[in-house]
Design a protein around this nucleic acid. Sequence first.
DNA 1: TCAAACCCTTACGTTTACGTAAGAGTGATA
DNA 2: TATCACTCTTACGTAAACGTAAGGGTTTGA
Lengths: 162, 162
Amino acid sequence: MPLEIGAESLSLLKVGDIARRTGKTVRAIHLYEELGLLNPAVRSKGGFRMYRGDGVKRIEWIQKLQDMGFSLTEIKVFLRVWEESATAPKAMATVREIFTDKLRETRETIARLTRLADELSESLAFLEGCRSCDQGQHQRECGGCGRSDHEVPLLVDGIAKR
Amino acid sequence: MPLEIGAESLSLLKVGDIARRTGKTVRAIHLYEELGLLNPAVRSKGGFRMYRGDGVKRIEWIQKLQDMGFSLTEIKVFLRVWEESATAPKAMATVREIFTDKLRETRETIARLTRLADELSESLAFLEGCRSCDQGQHQRECGGCGRSDHEVPLLVDGIAKR
DNA sequence: TCAAACCCTTACGTTTACGTAAGAGTGATA
DNA sequence: TATCACTCTTACGTAAACGTAAGGGTTTGA
């Protein structure tokens, strides 16, 4: 008769194993548990958290949502909504809603960052002209060059003020 | 003989004025001063901070850099580098460097967010198929439908686990 | 059975960009 | 001169996502 404990521990991972496989720290995993994002499958009789392989998947999922800009608290809400949905289609509908919102938000962020990148490019183009500035001029006298005010981008203009 | 004080105060702004014109709070402006990002032009004899109009520009500049992802501390370094550059062209070279770095970083962020948006779209497309799921099925039984594992996006798969 | 390597809980620390409150003085106006 | 709105300094509070340390058990393998 084989040892049940041995057979069990073959497929169960300790928190440190999960940490290594996900790149997270043990502390982070503990935190996720405190927040209700991930529970160990069982505890060893000594109290060790024992996880199944899908614990790794759950953490990768959390990571991805974090990358998308969800806070851990939002992720928690996400899970609760899921768990409280009586039927699968209803649960999926909620998930679709959340994802749709986040997709819109992400696209807005992309648009905003694109505008900022454009501004940066403009500023850099403007700064090219500063190469030919009188080499001995002190930075405090910057602004004294011939370039008219309205062509100075805000990103550059703000520095020299004061 | 006109009152000098009157003439002065005509063009000087109190911290509350600056706050209103920039949408920042008084506390925030105080913080910027603590961090060395913005100093009042003078103090009234009673100790009130008095700013010139370019204070507003400086704050708008700070706001823009924050939008770009600079921390206040980074902005401070930015200003110090500028102030310590002996000549204008040298100062501008440093600014170009910082902006170039940030531009690259911003583009990387845009690329990352674009990939995430794509993943979201994929997941949403997948979830369309869940509309036709057996209406009575409980969410806990999700995954029992005929769809093969490898076509389930991580963003969806991670929810149902555990 | 012993030791090294892990794990447990509890709880305070860290960073960022302010929020908020207290107690007191200032400035412009009636 | 009396107000009332504003401002001053000082200093503790806040939210997020862990980091870190302390004191003490648990596993596991030699």
